[in-house]
Each structure stands twice: as C-alpha cells, then as structure tokens.
Design a protein around this nucleic acid. Structure first.
Lengths: 257, 257
DNA sequence: TGAGGTAGCTGAAGCCTATTCAATTTAATC
DNA sequence: GATTAAATTGAATAGGCTTCAGCTACCTCA
C-alpha cells in the first residue's frame, strides 16, 4: 500500500539485504544517513508501542497514544506499519528475538540436560510474567489460525522453541531423556505448562517469597517429568547392572566350591 | 447502569433465587410469563453472539451483527449485557457450564484414574478445538489480571478444573498418583499442555487420520506423566527396586565371608 | 552551489462501531 | 380500560483507526 519502508518490519527478520545503498561500515550507525534515521525512528515507534501495550493493553492503547509517545504524527505510524495489528506483531517479533537470544545464551552456559531445561523453564516463566502484556496480545492478533501460519511471528516462535528442541534431542542422545520421546509432544507439554503455570503463579501468591517457592516447585516437577523419573529409575538400572556384575562374580566363586 | 435485567447473567451461575414472583411449577416454562420471555430472549442473544464470535472472531463481530442474528434492535443488547465484553463473557460462561457438565458426566462413567484422566484430556482437547473461537476471546477479555479475579468466568473455570482436582486426589488416595504430588502443579501442567497442544494439533496434521493419531500419542504421554510410568511399568520398577535392595544386602553378607 | 526530485512526514477528514437515551411499544395490575 | 412499569427501539453521539493531499527535508547531480 504505502510506498514507504513499510515492509522493513518483515525484512527485519533476516539480517538485512535491503535496498539501493551498498552497506557502509556498520560502525557509522551514529551518523545521520537517511537509512539510519529511518531505522532509529522505527525502533522508537516499536519501543513506544511496547511501552503502551504493556501498560494499557492492546485494546485500550490508541494509535494516537503511541504516536505521541514516539514523538511522531499519527499518520507516520502507517509509513512503518500497515495497521495497528501489524504494529503489535512488530512488538511481538521483537520480543521473540530478544527471548531467543537470551535463551540460547543461557543454555550454552550449562552442561547437563536437567540444568538446561531448568534454566529454559525459569527464564521463560520470568519473561512472560514480566512482559505479560505483550504475549497476551498474541491470541488477539492470531485469532484466525490462517493468520498465524506464515506470519513472521510464527517463524520467530519456531526459532525460539528450536532452542528447547535441540536440548531435548541432545538429552535423548545422551540418555537423559527416554529415546522414544517425541520432541513435539514434549515441547507442547513444556511450553503449554509454562504459559498456563505463569498465569496461575501470578494469581496466587502475591507475596514475593511465596511466588519464588511456588515457581521452584512447579519447574522442578515439570522438568522431572521430562528428564524422566530418570534419576531414580536410571539409578535402579545402574544398581542392577552393578549388582549383576557382582552376582556373577560371587556365583562363580560359590559354584567353584 | 441499566434498570433492566442486566444482572441476570451474573445470577445465572446460581440456581435462581431471583425476584418478586414466587416460583411457579417449573413445567409451565413454556408459558408466556414476562420472566420466561426475558430468559428466552437472553438465550437467543447469547446463542447469536456465540455463533457470530465463533465464525468471525471477537474483533470482527459487530454488535449490529449480533443484534440482527438475534432478531432484536442494537439497543436491546445493552438491556441484557453491559457492553460487548460482558456479552462475550456471557458466552464464555455458558461454554464453561456446558463443559463442566459433560466432563463430570464422563468422569463418573469411568473407574480407573488413568481412564478418567484420559477422558478429561480428550474431551478438553475436542472441545477447545471445536469451539476454539470462544476460548480465544478469553485473553482478550481478561487482559488485566484484576479483571479476571472475581469475574464469574473465573469462578466457573474453578468449578470446571475442580473435576480434574477431585480425580487427582482420588488417584493419590488409591496410590495411582504419587502422594507427594501437588494438585495445583499437576493441574497447571495438565491444562496448560492441553491448551497449547490443541493449537499445535490444529496447525500440523490437517488430515483427519493423522490428527487422531497425534492426539492419542500426545494424550497418552501427558496422562502417563501424571499417573506415573503407568500401572505395570511402575509396579515392575518398584519390585526391581526392592529386589535390588535385598540383593545388595544379601551380597554384602555373602561377600563378607 | 543550486535545481529537481523523492522519501518521509503531517494532521485534518472520512468511516466504522460501540454505546446512549428519549420516545414508543408491550405487558402486568387494579 | 386506565395506569404504571418494563422492554424495546433506532437515530444520534463519541471515539478510534485509517487515508491522503499537500508539505518538508534531504539527496543527487550538474
């Protein structure tokens, strides 16, 4: 529709193979080239929108409020985003990008399957509780399933959960997770439980302390369900194995007599 | 605000201790008393609203559309419901009431913890997939957590999940579920996984057959996580564990010689 | 350096809906 | 049948999203 940089949002998912100008040295981002100013303005709009949506919710936030907060005219918003929904999607996309980065970083810093999953769970919970206003817009925007498939929010979500998927596959390979486990099933259970549990946690336990304890109990249980009764069942197997060794040896001795 | 029967919706949760008239024989419901006509009209409005919301989604449904479908004037809607949100809540409340009834009935017809949970899971999945348009309105309406607490939707939801809670408590008492399990934690995991999994199921597997298989695999896994590695496997594990104990002790004695 | 061109910006006007309310119809009561 | 109260109506109001004709600031190139 608009001839302006409206599609920038879509393209933002990819590194940036944008338009006419050959890329200048990236360090000059501070300079006042047209592109950089445009990008800065888009960032300002997204930031203003996030602020407003988070504070007042999607429905009660008006485009005028966002424009005012971003320091632009109402019409300018439509140069960058097709409409209110697209702007909200932009905010969500941005959220997912940040979430994915921090999740991957956290996972990389841990060794065992259990600690990785434990981190992923806590991190997800923390984030959706902090920025709940944003993720609550998701169902509103993606009401028609067809809206969702193919949207950049969808692909960014896939990128995000891929962090979990990789962790599970590694866990399966290393024997921490039963090898017959279906990654998609575990993923649905994991994130479903976290989203629902997050709401639940916010409702009860208003006291800071109680919430933290509740959260720990919840996460521990959830993670234990995935890495299996693992520990115990596994240790039984381990013990049985060593018992078998000792039995064989002892039996040999007894039989020899 | 309105002097009309606007609060009927709220009161509908309770059997009906309404107003002036002493209750006549309930069989005369067909008659044309003022109250009965009012109730019939409210039902018509809720039904029309459900139809529209389900087909077009909350945002794209206009009050005018609902009024037309219900065969009343625009203004009449506001005699029964304070505003569009309240009307949507009415639709959701109605959904929960029906869901609770059918769930309880299904649970009553089953014996074991596993089959009860299996039924609850499948039933919940089926319903949220069929009437997805309705439950998708929930986050939109209840965006401010404070809206939710105390709303009749909240209390009806509590009534609904109570069916699950009872099943889990019974399962704990009968030993099918570990006695240290926290009902709230299990509940969050159960319904969270189902809600998320439902969306997931709808996205992949468009083919009828594949969806049914996916659903079975998903539900089996989820239920197994709650009732444990399941009756048989669990008892074997228990036996193995105790055998291991005895073996170790015995071996020590033998080896000592 | 200045003319010409264009990307980006502006904000008032248009359009669409939720919601209100004065007037009207319908039902209950006496 | 008259009186009163409850329900209903739909046109008017209000407020928010979106458009668009014109304006500004910047870039390019001679």
């Amino acid at each position: 529709m608009a001839s302006g940089p409206a599609e920038t949002t879509q393209a933002a998912a990819v590194p940036d193979a944008l338009s006419s100008q050959p890329k200048l040295s990236p360090s000059v981002e501070v300079s006042s080239t047209r592109q950089s100013r445009v990008r800065r303005r888009e960032d300002a709009i997204v930031a203003a929108a996030r602020e407003m949506f988070t504070t007042h919710g999607y429905a009660k936030t008006t485009m005028a409020m966002i424009a005012r907060a971003a320091g632009v005219a109402d019409g300018t918003l439509y140069t960058y985003f097709e409409n209110k929904e697209a702007l909200a999607r932009g905010v969500i996309a941005d959220f997912y990008k940040r979430l994915t980065d921090s999740s991957q970083a956290g996972v990389d810093g841990r060794r065992t399957t259990r600690t990785k999953l434990d981190f992923l769970a806590r991190h997800h919970l923390q984030r959706i509780m902090d920025e709940r206003g944003i993720i609550e817009m998701l169902p509103t925007l993606m009401s028609s399933l067809s809206d969702y498939e193919g949207s950049d929010v969808h692909s960014l979500n896939k990128t995000y959960v891929a962090v979990f998927d990789r962790t599970v596959r590694e866990g399966r390979a290393s024997g921490d997770i039963p090898s017959d486990a279906d990654v998609r099933v575990l993923r649905d259970i994991f994130y479903g439980a976290l989203d629902y549990g997050g709401k639940s946690l916010m409702m009860r336990s208003s006291r800071k302390g109680a919430r933290k304890a509740d959260m720990t109990r919840f996460v521990d249980r959830l993670v234990s369900m995935i890495v299996g009764t693992g520990e115990t069942a596994r240790s039984v197997a381990d013990r049985l194995e060593s018992v078998a060794d000792r039995l064989e040896n002892t039996l040999k001795q007894i039989e020899r007599k």
